[in-house]
């Protein structure tokens, strides 16, 4: 059986790096999905959360969404360059992506400091003093979801960096760019869901 031709991909034939990455991504979806399910249900249960959502910085969130969408585009460009085995272009697009990740994290850090300044923290003792017990949970979930996502941004950027360095050094392993890129897209997709849930619905 010769399976190299494009049209005859059987239902289970896929290179192993990509296969492993897709499996990982499916697993990550369930983790974040669990958090989003918890968030959605509590959001339905406590209408008071809408008021809390107004305290988030929509402008910063919008810029961040744009940054991540753009970085996703950069990663596919890097993949396109990797297919052509063009090391310089791969390096260029990956560096742009990592720059986007840094911008994202910077804006997120600015948001966090602002919110902590307002008294919204993981445990929000300030809200408790005002008698807003239920609302503390909103901020706990906010920090959990965005924090976990932020960790994935860091992880994805590091993965991209190391893969790029290895590719630049050895001039091979180009398929790893796509695998790391897949992970980066997953980070983007999670944000696509987090952004409206956290920032837009009041």
């Amino acid at each position: 059986m010769n399976t190299t031709s494009l049209s005859k991909i059987a239902w289970n034939r896929i290179p192993q790096a990509r296969f492993a990455m897709w499996t990982l991504i499916a697993g990550e979806f369930v983790i974040f999905g669990g958090l989003i399910v918890v968030y959605l249900l509590n959001r339905m249960k406590y209408p008071g959360w809408g008021e809390m959502a107004m305290h988030t910085n929509v402008v910063a969130g919008t810029i961040n969404t744009f940054v991540l969408l753009t970085s996703s585009f950069f990663v596919v460009k890097a993949h396109e360059a990797a297919v052509k085995k063009n090391v310089e272009k791969v390096k260029f697009w990956i560096w742009l992506t990592i720059l986007c990740a840094l911008i994202f994290l910077g804006i997120k850090a600015y948001e966090y400091t602002h919110e902590i300044h307002l008294g919204f923290t993981l445990s929000s003792p300030a809200l408790l003093e005002q008698g807003k017990h239920v609302e503390t949970l909103y901020w706990a979930l906010y920090y959990t979801m965005t924090g976990l996502h932020g960790l994935h941004v860091v992880g994805g950027a590091l993965a991209l960096f190391f893969v790029m360095r290895n590719v630049a050094k050895t001039k091979s392993y180009f398929h790893r760019i796509e695998a790391a890129g897949l992970y980066w897209h997953m980070v983007d997709i999670i944000w696509i869901f987090l952004f409206p849930l956290i920032y837009l619905i009041h």
Partner: peptide, 10 residues
């Protein structure tokens, strides 16, 4: 058996 090419972009 060569299930799939490891690096080829197909």
């Amino acid at each position: 058996e060569l299930w799939v090419p490891a690096e080829d972009d197909y």
